[in-house]
Structure formats: C-alpha cells, structure tokens
Design a protein around this nucleic acid. Structure first.
Lengths: 199, 199
DNA sequence: GTCAACTTGGCAGCTTCTGCCATGATGACA
DNA sequence: TGTCATCATGGCAGAAGCTGCCAAGTTGAC
C-alpha cells in the first residue's frame, strides 16, 4: 500500500507534467507550447518529459482517454439480462456526464482538438484502440460464432456518436452537458442506417 | 490546353516525388525513408519537397486518398430514382475495384499504414474529411429539413466498412480483390446496428 | 529582346525525439 | 547502520521534420 517513495514521486511528476501541459495548452495553444515550456513549468528536464510521454501529443490523449478506458472496462462481463442498448447507454453516459463538471475546460480541449491537425490525428488513433476494445466487449451480445463484423461496426459507430455529440455540445454554449443530445443519436442506431428499399 | 511549360513541369515534379516516395516507403519502410532520400531520388532539394507536400505524411495520403475523393465527387447529384444503397454500393465498388489491379502494392500500403502510427493518424484525419464530404453528398436522401445526424453517422459508418473490408482483404492473401467482402458488410448496414429489444 | 513573376536551391534555425553516459536518490540486505 | 545494486534524472550530442529568407536561374508576356 505504501507503494514506495519512488513510485509515488513518479506518479506525482507525471501528474504535474500533465497538469502543466494541459494548462499551457489551453492558455496559449498546443503548437505555441514547446516541450521545453512544459518541462520548465513542471520543473523537470525535457529529457524526462519524453520518458513519461512518448510524444508531445500523448499528454493530451493520456488525459482525455482515461475516462473512456474506464468506461469500457466497467462495461463488465456479458449479462444476458442487459440489452445492448442499455449497456451502451450506461457507458456513454459515464463518459459524457463528467464533461459537464468542467465544461469550460472540456470545451477548450474540444476546440483544441479541432484546430490542431497533429493532435486530432493522434486522437483518432487513440479512438481506434478504444473501438477495438469496445468491439471485444460487445462481441458476446452478438453470439459467439457470428462474424465479428457487426460488433466492430457497432463499436465504431458508437464512437462516432460520441464524437458527434461532443462536437455539437461544444458548439452550443447553451448546453450545460452533452447528455441531452445522446438520446436522439442512440435512436438513430436503433434503426437501419440504410433505410429499407430497392436493391 | 497547352497549360504552359512551367505548369507541366510542376506536375511532373510532383508525380516524380510521389512515385519515388511510394517506392522507397514500400522498399525500406516509412520511418526508414527520410525526406532527403525522397528528394535525392526525385532529383530535387528537400526544400522543394516541402513546397509540394506540407509534411512527409501527406505524400502517402495524397496518393491514397485520390481515388476516394474521385468516388465521392462522382457520386453526383441527388436522384430520387437511385436508392441510398445503390449509390453507396457504386461508390464503394469504385474505390475497391482498382485495389485488385495492383494488389501487392495495395497490401503493402495497408500494412504500412498499420505499422506506422504517425501515418495512420494522418490517414484517419484524411478519412474524416472524406466523411464530411460524403455526409454532405448523402444528405438529400435523408430529406432537407431532417437533422444531419443520420447522414453523418451513415457516412462515418460507410467509411468504417471500407476500412474493415480493406483490412480483412489485406490479411487474406487468397483474396484477389476486396469486392467479395463488401456485400456482407453492406448487409449489416441494412439492419439496425442495435437489434430491437427492451429499453 | 527585355523585364516581371515565379520556381528552385541553399542556408540557418527551431522543435520534436532518441541514444548515451554520469550523477544522485532509493531501497534491499547484511 | 553501512554497503551496494537499481533506477530516475539531467545533460549532451545529434538526427529528422519543417520554415523563413534570400539569391539565382527559368519561364512567359509584352
């Protein structure tokens, strides 16, 4: 439990760097903040920064993807009493609810992602990993011996929904949190994306 | 029509750089190929390379996203006699058919994308632009005054399908082209991603 | 034939990121 | 408590991506 002094110091260093980076990014922008700036603010050397975060973009994704990882992990084991819709709703709400707690910061991050191509690429890349993990977690609902195409497509589309909801929320300052936008998006997933029709 | 010598020279230079880059990337890998290498192979200076391609990754996306752009552009105007399914099928076939013509190269690119995080991020970023354009092109099929959520989700999911199909094709050397995988994926889109069920 | 516009090359410089080694702190064991 | 292996850190040098600036050569219009 004590976990050792070294271990605690490393956690603290990591947290201080992430906080300093997040603050500086929001203050002056991602590109205008150098790793040197972050290192100075966290009282470490740039060399140490790169030991904790493989690249500059990873500070942002490490901060922002943590809640997503948690939500997918807590999706839990397959339970035949829970419908696919209910577990997905629960997961998405778990991810979206905290956004309202610090909406200024969350909006800031959202806009920063939009305006910084390098960051958005890295972000989409992270999202892709989430998609794979979500697809695995959802697979049991589709049966064991079925082709995994359906679960993979659903997982990907659910993350598209999340993306869409967050983006709209960021653009509409009158919305306190993005939860209200979720229901309509989930409704769309309950109908065929391609309406029935001729060949 | 003559278009001027300068203009033709620029096109030639651009093509030579793209070809040299593509060849070198496939030969020795993306990371192991420097911009200097590409510039040498195309007999230009590195400085000129960056005048044509804003960053190294853009050579790859410029090559690979051209057919996608064409396909979306040729999706054409709204025609109420064409079903959504038919225009999407036409578009996806237009993108996937040429893959079989040079399958070795296409597989090489696919694996390169997989193994190079920076490239994949940039690729996903490009895909995102395609999604926006596709969503705009599909919007008329959803009616004018409807919320654009449905068309945006469909566009995103169609590109997920493309991604999935290409990935599976690349992994299965027995497949000449990826067209055979398309039908099943499109079938999934014709049914609700979330099966009907309780709340 | 002349001149303006433009393309290219080279150079210096910044930033991200990595390998290497010395230094100092931590923690285990006697 | 003392000793020693381990490990986190810092500093340094350097590669690679990328940009601004200016000089030189080419193109194309009059």
């Amino acid at each position: 439990m004590a976990a050792g002094l070294t271990e605690r110091n490393k956690l603290r260093t990591r947290r201080e760097m992430a906080e300093a980076a997040g603050r500086l990014f929001l203050e002056r922008g991602y590109d205008a903040t150098t790793v040197q700036d972050i290192a100075d603010a966290a009282a470490v050397s740039p060399r140490t920064f790169f030991r904790y975060f493989p690249c500059k973009e990873d500070v942002v994704t490490a901060i922002a993807s943590a809640s997503m990882d948690d939500a997918i992990d807590h999706l839990g084991e397959y339970d035949e009493n829970k419908t696919l819709r209910s577990v997905l709703t629960t997961m998405l709400r778990a991810v979206l609810a905290p956004v309202g707690d610090n909406s200024t910061r969350a909006r800031g991050f959202q806009f920063m992602l939009r305006e910084t191509p390098a960051l958005r690429g890295r972000w989409l890349e992270e999202r892709r990993k989430s998609r794979d993990r979500l697809a695995d977690a959802l697979a049991p609902w589709f049966g064991d011996d079925v082709d995994p195409m359906a679960s993979r497509l659903l997982a990907g589309t659910v993350l598209l929904v999340l993306d869409e909801v967050m983006s709209r929320w960021a653009d509409d300052p009158s919305l306190a949190d993005p939860l209200g936008l979720l229901d309509e998006a989930l409704r769309v997933l309950g109908e065929p994306l391609i309406p029935a029709g001729g060949q």
